[in-house]
Nucleic acid binder design. Structure first.
Lengths: 109, 109
DNA sequence: TGACAATATAACATATATGTGATATATTAG
DNA sequence: CTAATATATCACATATATGTTATATTGTCA
């Protein structure tokens, strides 16, 4: 299912990642693509076509294609819709960093 | 800091939740509001004003106000920007439901 | 090979998220 | 109370996510 181009691409990707700026962009986008990857794999596992998924969500196939190609900035609402249609659980976790500092502040007493 | 209206609202909210349809909507929106609540609490803990936060992510105070009021459907991109400006870690988890079923299917043998 | 299904792409319309200034309304400090 | 600061609201412009049709490309199967 995966063409041999993958090997060539891997080399290309590796060379790109030697550039710090590109690497930073890549790291930032990685979660996005991993998420999309999960959506695609799930849809395939369910033997569902883009057209079928689109119908469930109330849109058309090209919209699903764009979403899976990751060429735009999805809304939380559509993300929930897609996850729901694929019978997936979507959770968003927000955690504050560097909270241990506050403990040290109170230690003195 | 919280007005006494909260008590009145709590009763109002409780009465609304007796309606199954409204309750369903509420359950669906709950994660959204919990997320927003975390963002607001974090901003306050950092003693940061909406204006300051807005400046960091390159926008204006009213945009932050709208976001915190939850009256629209945020984009993943802006969500990441805000979380980053508040030094928070944003994680999105996608899990397929009903996977335990496959186990039972294999039990018979 | 040709027919068929799935996906990608292009082009455009529409809805809406976002940017932004002006202003109103808290909220707090003095 | 007044002044100052923070937040909410309004109104509008702009950017872009989404809807949608037509078509191209790809992959599979006979």
């Amino acid at each position: 299912m995966v063409s041999k181009k993958a090997t060539v691409y891997d080399e290309f990707e590796a060379s790109l990642l030697e550039n710090p700026e590109i690497r930073k962009e890549y790291e930032a986008l990685k979660p996005k693509y991993e998420m999309i990857q999960k959506l695609i794999e799930r849809r395939n596992k369910l033997n569902m076509s883009q057209t079928q998924l689109a119908k469930i969500i109330g849109t058309k196939q090209p919209a699903i294609s764009r979403l899976e190609r990751g060429d735009y900035n999805t809304t939380l609402g559509t993300l929930f819709k897609v996850a729901s249609a694929l019978d997936m659980d979507l959770e968003i976790s927000l955690k504050a960093n560097g909270e241990t500092k506050s403990t040290r502040d109170k230690v003195s007493a």
